[in-house]
Design a protein around this nucleic acid. Structure first.
Lengths: 114, 114
DNA sequence: CGGCGATGCTACTGTTTTTGTAGCAAGGCT
DNA sequence: AGCCTTGCTACAAAAACAGTAGCATCGCCG
């Protein structure tokens, strides 16, 4: 597989430790963006989160959550459930405009991705 | 399985056809974000693109590119190579702030993702 | 206290995606 | 003709993911 260079800030697809690459790789895993998105307005329990993601399998959701926690974007809420950290909210805001872009974009399209 | 409801605007992870979900799902596939990113300043041949992505396997790159083409974010350039469409550039701009966010974020972190 | 439900999380099996390598046909250039 | 690049595909192996089940723990109500 030639990848996985095992430095400190090296992630799967990106040998360079450039922050943007690390971030892009982290966000480019299934459900990651979606999870951040679903946490946009508050706390969700692990099961609530799964439900919000259209009943994704607990395996991935749990894995993504722990990755996001390690990255400092998500944290466990005091009385159960997960929530975005301050950084996480910042991140979400960063690609918030995606929302309206999506609407505009789909305006002129019917079928996408498969 | 159980997913793939076969409507017109339905994608893998998102049964709802909400634009944002479709977009989130599309972007949440490995290399998609990265590919858009690498195309940020000009035309890249298919091989150049692969190289830019740290020699990702041609299979995925090709697959992602065709998905992105179908979505209208990428197009073939006249004399070989791929480039972002107008919409694609718009999309890229949308999450461009990610760049500086990433820098700030990694400022206080050492190891992420894994 | 005992039972009940919810929570966070893990195990396990099977399917799908991704990877890595090789290779093709088409075109350009010399 | 040779040689190189381009876009793209084939195929086997490895990893990620999906679905289902289940566990230990905690709060709560009776």
């Amino acid at each position: 597989m030639a990848k996985r260079a095992a430095a400190s800030v090296t992630v799967r697809g990106s040998k360079t430790g450039r922050p943007i690459m690390v971030l892009l790789d982290l966000l480019g895993r299934r459900w990651t963006l979606r999870i951040l998105w679903e946490l946009r307005d508050g706390v969700l329990t692990s099961r609530g989160l799964r439900a919000a993601c259209g009943d994704a399998s607990p395996t991935v959701v749990q894995q993504r959550v722990s990755e996001l926690r390690k990255a400092g974007f998500v944290e466990k809420h005091d009385k159960g459930g997960y929530a975005l950290t301050v950084t996480g909210r910042e991140l979400l805001q960063t690609f918030w405009p995606l929302h309206e872009f999506a609407a505009r974009w789909q305006g002129g399209k019917k079928d996408v991705a498969q």
